[in-house]
Design a protein around this nucleic acid. Structure first.
Lengths: 204, 204
DNA sequence: CTCCTTCTGCAGCGATCGCTGCAGAAGTGC
DNA sequence: GCACTTCTGCAGCGATCGCTGCAGAAGGAG
């Protein structure tokens, strides 16, 4: 602490690459190949840096993936937080599903969801990353459930509604969309299906 | 061809293990770890045989996986064919979803669906297996769509029903259940959710 | 018994895995 | 200029990957 201006840059040799840009490239590789399917050689090649630079900047492969997952959550998957702010539960559900459909079928990005296909199954050495994504998906479910609970409390949803069941239904459908997108199913078909699914809300 | 009785056993040294039992063990390993997450060492260890015996009996890792997928289709995933024989479309949908729930949450088996988590993402060298599972999932969808088309033709479903949309909805939901099961969500909760989803049929 | 075929155990192939030691390059502070 | 810190390129670490050559074992055919 102090009044020192400290306008000088960081000490030492400056980085020869844009860490943010490198992280973006790494995200695309993990997104497409999954955690264990993306080798360090494949990653660093896409990032345009050497393995040494990658390890100096991000620690190791697992830490790089955690950074990537944060970026994914705040970037491609940010539709989730925005959807929570919709005034009605139906609005939330609609925004989530259309957000999933758009994010998992964007032409410029790998198809599917990083949080689903990043590490659905792993070898023995990848358990921690698998658990990380399990927690990531469960966290999404919890947020939706709490939002629907609030909707029940506010009278937006019928009082006998089970928010957990509704949240499980919605996230299950979202994960299913991610699998379909990863299989190459087109955006329009998925959106049409999501629309049809929400024509019955909230589940009779 | 001829009238030779040929009652003698096969020529050469007989196999020292039960190929069917070995295939079952391999299925469980692929189911849990996925195609690329299951190393040959892990597989052969579980199968109780040497790598040489595995290669002699099944060709290579990819051919072993194809054999395993066949076994999975006719075993744990056989509920699909049985469901098709239900008299009504609603019966088909109900049977499929409850079949998915039971198969993906069986305590004695890995959680989730081999056809989904077997190779949702792969490295460059695993593309063919990924494509194999994409085709496997698409085949499931096609069978359901054709069954629902028949239901429309028979008057079981309203004439304005889109069988493709309905089949896409059902398979999406099924794949989502597989992801949830792989994440540790319990059987009862998933079944309750499936029941609620089918309370609205056929999608308004 | 000898031939023939097939299967098994051992040992190890080249390639790739994630990761690191080291020396030099490229900056700042003095 | 020199000291100090950080980053980079090269080269290579031990481990594991999928897979195979080879010699011997274990059966049937004659």
């Amino acid at each position: 602490m102090g009044v020192e201006t400290n306008q000088s840059g960081p000490i030492g040799r400056p980085r020869g690459f844009d860490a943010d840009e490198a992280l973006e490239r790494a995200m695309l590789v993990f997104w497409k190949h999954g955690y264990e399917g993306a080798s360090t050689a494949c990653l660093t090649n896409a990032m345009g840096i050497s393995t040494t630079s990658m390890y100096a900047a991000f620690g190791n492969k697992e830490k790089l993936f955690r950074k990537v997952l944060e970026r994914y959550t705040e970037g491609p998957s940010a539709y989730l937080v925005r959807a929570m702010e919709e005034p009605t539960a139906l609005g939330v559900a609609t925004a989530i599903l259309s957000g999933v459909v758009r994010t998992t079928t964007r032409p410029a990005h790998p198809h599917g969801c990083l949080g689903v296909q990043g590490a659905l199954t792993v070898s023995d050495s990848g358990q921690e990353v698998r658990d990380l994504l399990v927690a990531w998906r469960n966290d999404g479910y919890s947020r939706v459930r709490e939002r629907f609970q609030r909707a029940v409390d506010d009278g937006d949803l019928p009082p006998q509604t089970d928010p957990g069941l509704l949240a499980r239904y919605l996230t299950t459908f979202a994960f299913g969309i991610a699998v379909q997108a990863a299989s190459g199913v087109g955006r329009d078909e998925l959106q049409e299906m999501a629309d049809a699914a929400l024509r019955n809300w909230p589940l009779s």
